[in-house]
Every structure is written in structure tokens, then in C-alpha cells.
């Protein structure tokens, strides 16, 4: 690492692999000039634009909302777009970027997420609303909304899925991303099929397959907690009939104004 004012040279090692040509993946080294505000993605973009146009990776939004650019940097899964390079360089100014582990490689840092999306489809990620829909909105209480907030933030980047050893050992496992989505649906008072969902994910490759290794929590770039969601679903799966009865009851009043708790406040972020 050479220092020169605020810019310095970093060594980025990138795993390269084109299955059509290469026998096995290899690490290639690139030198890039970096400044304090350079992100890992910036470094990749610089390499692609100025040194090697064939370097292949996915990216789009650049600020951690689209979920394209999940990769493995120095052994940890992360989005590269909002990861400052300075945080991942070692003392010698080096960082190693590999594709997400445990998934088939399409090319260089691009992985095949088909299995990931199949599991997402398998849990029926969509809401199944009640048959009777009011003219205006269903009345969800602020507390019901708050319970769903974290699960709703998931950007489906695959960082958790590809950090999970259970997924690595058994592809039929639905995976933390799909279970977090199920948490969102099962706990939503507007969803009419909680019992069917709990039967599905209470089965062979659902919630009980999780070994609470917690990699999903550490890998999540949005700081979400799939393990906690899975634990909640486990408990609900055990009392699913009662839960379904409660839901049916709740849906009776879903179109009516919610009782307002004394001292209830407007959402804290309503001013922006």
C-alpha cells in the first residue's frame, strides 16, 4: 500500500471464471487508485472501465436497495455498492472478492440464483387477501404494521441464502429469504391463508430444518434477522389451528376503524 495524499493504491484480487473456457476459478490481481470515499463497487467499475472489460458482475442501483451486487468479500457476504473499500483492505492494502459461495457460477462474480428464486416461488410470496375487499383500505393498526417492518425491507440479494450451510448441504431447504417472506405474509392480518402456509413451512424442508447457525443474520446487508423470524414461525406452526382462528376473527373487523389507544401517535417519520 502506497500513500499519496488522500489517494493510495490498493490490490484487488478477483475470482475469475468462465465455465465455457476455464477449467477452474482463478484469482486475478488488479491495482487501483482509491480515495477514502471509494466503495468496493467503485473499484470493480474502475477495473472494468480501464483495465479489463471482460470482468463480469451484476450491479445497478448503487445504494443497497436493488439487491444485485451481493458478493463475498474477504470471506464475508455483503453488497459491494455500499461497502467502503477502506473497511475491507488489510494492512497491506489488499482485498479479495469472490462470488456468493455455494451457488453455481455463471461467470466471474455472477452466480446462478435459480434455486433461490425457486424457493421464493415455492412459498407463494404473494398476499392472499380476504374474499371481501373494502372500498378503501384495510385498517391495520400501527402495531401490526410495526411487526412487519423488518421483513418488508428484504431486498432478495441472496447474501443470507448463500451463507447458510443448511442450504449448502440440502438444496431442498426453502432458505432464510423465503422464510422471512413467509413471516411477512403469515403475520399480516390481511393474509387469509396462514394455516396453509404454516403447514407448508412446517414440513420437511421448512422451519425445522434451520440449525440456528445465524450466518443469515451476520450476512444480511440490511441488518435483518431471518433466524428470529424462523423462531417465531416455529412457534406459530405448533399452534397453527388456533392462530388461523384468531386470524379469521381479526379479519371480521379488518375493514372497520381500529380502536385508538389513548395517547396513540402519528408515525414518527411522517415529516420525511
Amino acid at each position: 500500500m502506497t500513500q499519496n495524499g488522500t489517494t493510495r493504491t490498493a490490490t484487488i484480487r478477483v475470482q475469475r471464471f468462465n465455465p465455457d473456457v476455464d477449467a477452474k476459478p482463478t484469482l486475478r490481481e488488479y491495482q487501483v487508485q482509491v480515495s477514502p470515499d471509494t466503495t468496493v463497487l467503485d473499484a470493480l467499475e474502475t477495473i472494468k472501465a480501464t483495465q479489463d472489460g471482460s470482468l463480469t458482475y451484476r450491479r445497478s442501483c448503487r445504494h443497497a436497495i436493488c439487491g444485485s451486487c451481493a458478493m463475498n468479500v474477504n470471506g464475508k457476504n455483503t453488497l459491494v455498492c455500499n461497502k467502503p473499500l477502506r473497511e475491507v483492505l488489510d494492512r497491506k492494502g489488499r482485498a479479495t472478492i469472490r462470488p456468493l459461495p455455494y451457488l453455481p457460477i455463471i461467470k466471474d462474480l455472477v452466480v446462478d440464483r435459480s434455486q433461490f428464486w425457486e424457493q421464493y416461488l415455492r412459498v407463494k410470496p404473494w398476499l392472499i387477501p380476504p374474499a371481501d375487499v373494502p372500498e378503501a383500505e384495510f385498517r391495520m393498526t400501527p402495531a401490526e404494521v410495526a411487526a412487519l417492518r423488518d421483513a418488508e425491507k428484504c431486498i432478495m440479494c441472496g447474501a443470507c441464502y448463500s451463507s447458510c450451510q443448511v442450504v449448502a448441504l440440502r438444496q431442498a431447504y426453502v432458505g432464510p429469504h423465503a422464510l422471512l417472506k413467509m413471516y411477512l405474509r403469515v403475520l399480516d392480518p390481511r393474509d387469509s391463508a396462514p394455516e396453509e402456509r404454516l403447514v407448508e413451512i412446517g414440513g420437511d424442508d421448512g422451519v425445522y430444518r434451520c440449525h440456528t447457525i445465524f450466518n443469515c443474520i451476520d450476512a444480511c446487508p440490511k441488518e435483518l434477522n431471518p433466524t428470529a423470524a424462523i423462531e417465531t414461525l416455529r412457534k406459530l406452526a405448533q399452534k397453527r389451528a388456533a392462530f388461523a382462528r384468531e386470524r379469521a376473527e381479526r379479519q371480521q373487523t379488518l375493514a372497520m376503524p381500529a380502536p385508538v389507544a389513548p395517547g396513540a401517535e402519528m408515525p414518527a417519520d411522517i415529516e420525511g
Binding site: G75, N77, P101, Y102, S163, Q165, A168, H211, T212, I213, F214, N215, D218
Partner: peptide
């Protein structure tokens, strides 16, 4: 290989 305390305990 994705190593972590969780993985060590699992192993």
C-alpha cells in the same frame, strides 16, 4: 466455506 461461531457450534 463460510465460517462463523454458529457454524463451529453446528459442526
Amino acid at each position: 466455506m463460510y465460517t462463523s461461531t454458529g457454524f463451529i457450534s453446528f459442526l
